[in-house]
């Protein structure tokens, strides 16, 4: 069959996927105020962005939330994966089922169910509610990443550690943790990005006491065109690109 047809098609679709991103990046350096017409190169929107104190505060809040959510979900997710992998216990299927439900249920359903819970127990909406929610939706992804790593692993190693007299805790620390390290890093990066990108769940469980970036952007772009958002989007793009390359690099290196 002709070979240029599939190639042209692939190129075309990639072009469609990347044109909006390209437009965003180019327009972040636009000097014009109108937002649609090109008015020469300038860094004024980056300047405006960093002079906007509420925006900078929201940036720090988002970063801190993503850092803490990724860390907590990596710890709990890794322990869950280890428990599922090593232990036999009652209700294992139920545990698996609950993780599956979190991953497959529409985001908005997760969002309202968590909001309901937080209001019921009287938790003030803010950092803590956001953290609990973000850890919950990141958890299944960490568990899957770590489980995948554990499933291709030589079972004789932990047995050997045991035979040499190591306790379960020591064995986990000295044998299992080093083995799953790449998966932990990859899971952490995935959690970090998921948290930083989330709009749906945060809209519900966030509160005015802790404003985060996606909600700030959301309220800005609903009303009209805000050229600062171009600059912010470009920064976020570069940031997540670095994170993604980092995680791929870690995974590839560990396979060798």
């Amino acid at each position: 069959m002709t070979r240029w047809l599939p190639r042209t098609y692939l190129t075309l679709v990639y072009l469609l996927l990347y044109v909006p991103i390209l437009v965003l990046v180019v327009f972040s350096f636009n000097d014009s105020r109108s937002g649609y017409a090109w008015g020469g190169l300038s860094l004024r929107w980056y300047e405006a962005l960093f002079n906007n104190r509420a925006m900078v505060q929201a940036m720090w809040n988002s970063l801190w939330l993503a850092l803490s959510a990724a860390t907590v979900s990596t710890v709990i997710g890794a322990l869950t994966a280890l428990a599922l992998h090593r232990y036999r216990f009652r209700g294992k299927q139920v545990l698996n089922g609950m993780l599956f439900v979190v991953m497959m249920s529409p985001e908005i359903v997760l969002a309202i169910s968590l909001l309901g819970l937080f209001l019921l127990v009287g938790l003030q909406l803010g950092y803590v509610s956001l953290l609990l929610a973000h850890v919950t939706f990141c958890l299944p992804f960490v568990v899957i990443t770590v489980m995948a790593r554990l499933s291709g692993f030589d079972e004789r190693l932990p047995e050997a550690a045991r035979d040499l007299g190591a306790s379960d805790f020591t064995m986990t620390r000295t044998v299992l943790i080093p083995v799953i390290m790449p998966a932990l890093l990859a899971g952490w990066l995935l959690g970090f990005t998921l948290s930083l990108d989330d709009v749906v769940v945060s809209t519900f469980v966030g509160g005015p006491s802790y404003e985060i970036l996606p909600l700030r952007i959301y309220s800005m772009v609903r009303v009209g065109l805000k050229p600062e958002v171009n600059a912010l989007g470009t920064l976020l793009l570069v940031f997540s690109l670095v994170m993604l390359m980092l995680s791929q690099w870690i995974l590839l290196r560990s396979k060798r």
Binding site: Y14, P20, L24, Y36, D197, Y218, G233, L236, L237, L244
Partner: peptide, 29 residues
């Protein structure tokens, strides 16, 4: 190519939706 496919997925979806607004607006691109 798969890497290129998931790069947008790792980019803030709000920001990407907003980028479409720049293109589709009445006096847009």
């Amino acid at each position: 190519l798969i890497f290129l496919l998931i790069v947008p997925f790792w980019t803030n979806s709000l920001v990407r939706t907003y980028a479409l607004k720049l293109i589709l607006a009445t006096n847009g691109l």
